[in-house]
Computed example of a mutant assay.
Amino acid sequence: MAYRIRLNASLKCTRYLLRQGLSFRGHDESATSSNKGNYLELLQFLVNHDEKVKALVLENAPGNLKLIAPSIKKDLVNACAKECISLIMSDLKDRYFSIIVDEARDVSIKEQMAIMVRYVNNKGQIIKRFVGVQHVTDTTSSALKKSIDEFFSFEGLSFSKLRGQGYDRDSNMIGEFNDLKTKILREQLCAFYVHCFAHQLQLTLVAVAKKNIDVASFFTMANNLVNVVGASCKRHDALRVQYQ
């Protein structure tokens, strides 16, 4: 019973921080710190407003059951992530679906592959769900295909239900012979490729803007104006007064 109360308190803090997209750890989490970070401060708030929690959490918990170690926080976050993906997969069931894959680096300079699924639910609504980020040490089409295979295997998805794939226009994604798109099509001929319209539109707009002198001058002037005004609080206030 005592462990359940401690775990529930930690889970409440974890769910709140995840829902709000807030960081867990603080710069200084020592006992003398005036701000120990969001997780510990939120847990302390629960302690201050719930007598049952206060009797069993933080200072009143055994040294090996405080549930505040970084590794415990990561375990709780991973558990929440698995529950969310489990709900998404239960809604997806055996429906036909498409995947959207993109690459991005995080702040630790690690290459990542983000995966989304897109399907139609029982109400006829188009649902798009983010289902995970996987660290990839190599961005070749073979490495990305292997990561997708591992994700499909882990989540119990089948290529026989795959009906679409969407990426940007990088050569390793949509080349002609040995790209990711072709590798998936070899396994599932019905997984039609749809290029990223937003990415293509952005490239088109940039190319057109550079060729048009008036448009290029406008954006150059707008960029300079933003830099000049944004660098000074006084200029910012003066501009705001002019447009009141």
Rank of each mutant, 00 (worst) to 15 (best):
Cys13Phe: 09
Leu46Val: 10
Lys12Glu: 15
Ser30His: 02
Asn60Trp: 06
Tyr39Ser: 01
Leu17Ile: 02
Leu17Arg: 01
Glu59Trp: 09
Leu22Cys: 09
Thr32Ile: 13
Gly26Ile: 01
Leu11Gln: 13
Arg25Ile: 01
Pro62Ile: 09
Pro62Thr: 08
Leu18Asn: 10
Gly37Pro: 00
Lys54Gly: 15
Lys52Asp: 12
Tyr39Leu: 00
Ala61Asn: 07
Tyr39Ala: 00
Leu18Arg: 08
Tyr16Ala: 15
Leu42Ile: 11
Glu29Trp: 03
His49Gln: 12
Leu40Cys: 01
Phe45Asn: 12
Leu46Ala: 08
Phe24Asp: 10
Ala31Arg: 10
Lys52Cys: 08
Glu29Pro: 01
Thr14Arg: 00
Gln20Trp: 05
Arg25Ala: 03
Val53Ile: 15
Cys13His: 04
Asn38Met: 04
Thr14Gln: 02
Gln20His: 12
His49Pro: 07
Leu11Pro: 06
Glu51Thr: 15
Leu11Asn: 14
Asn60Leu: 05
His27Tyr: 10
Ala55Trp: 03
Asn8Trp: 07
Gly26Trp: 03
Leu40Pro: 03
Lys12Tyr: 14
Gln44Leu: 11
Asn60Pro: 05
Ala55Tyr: 04
Glu41Met: 13
Leu42Val: 08
Lys36Glu: 03
Leu58His: 01
Glu59Thr: 12
Lys12Phe: 13
Ser30Tyr: 01
Ala31Thr: 13
Ala9Cys: 11
Asn48Gln: 15
Ser33Gln: 04
Phe24Ser: 05
Leu11Gly: 11
Glu51Met: 13
Ala9Met: 14
Cys13Thr: 10
Gly26Ala: 04
Phe45Cys: 15
Phe45Ile: 15
Val57Asn: 06
Glu59Asp: 15
Gly63Ile: 10
Ser34Glu: 11
Ser34Gln: 15
Asn60Met: 08
Leu43Met: 12
Glu29Gln: 01
Gly21Asn: 06
Thr32Gln: 11
Glu59Leu: 07
Val57Ser: 11
Tyr16Gly: 07
Leu18Thr: 06
Lys36Arg: 06
Arg15Cys: 10
Tyr39Gly: 05
Gly21Val: 10
Leu18Lys: 05
Val47Trp: 11
Asn48Val: 08
Lys54Arg: 07
Leu42Met: 14
Lys54Asp: 12
Val53Gln: 05
Lys52Tyr: 13
Lys52Asn: 15
Leu22His: 08
Ser23Phe: 01
Glu59Cys: 13
Leu11His: 09
Arg15Phe: 08
Ala61Gly: 03
Asn35Tyr: 03
Glu41Ala: 00
Lys36Ala: 02
Arg25Lys: 02
Ala61Met: 00
Gly26Leu: 00
Leu17Gly: 02
His27Thr: 13
Leu18Glu: 07
Val47Ala: 14
Leu58Cys: 10
Gln20Leu: 10
Gly63Pro: 07
Leu11Asp: 06
Gly26Cys: 01
Gln44Gly: 12
Leu22Trp: 11
Glu41Ile: 00
Ser23Gly: 10
Arg19Lys: 15
Asn35Leu: 09
Asn38Thr: 04
Glu59Pro: 07
Ser33Arg: 03
Ser30Thr: 10
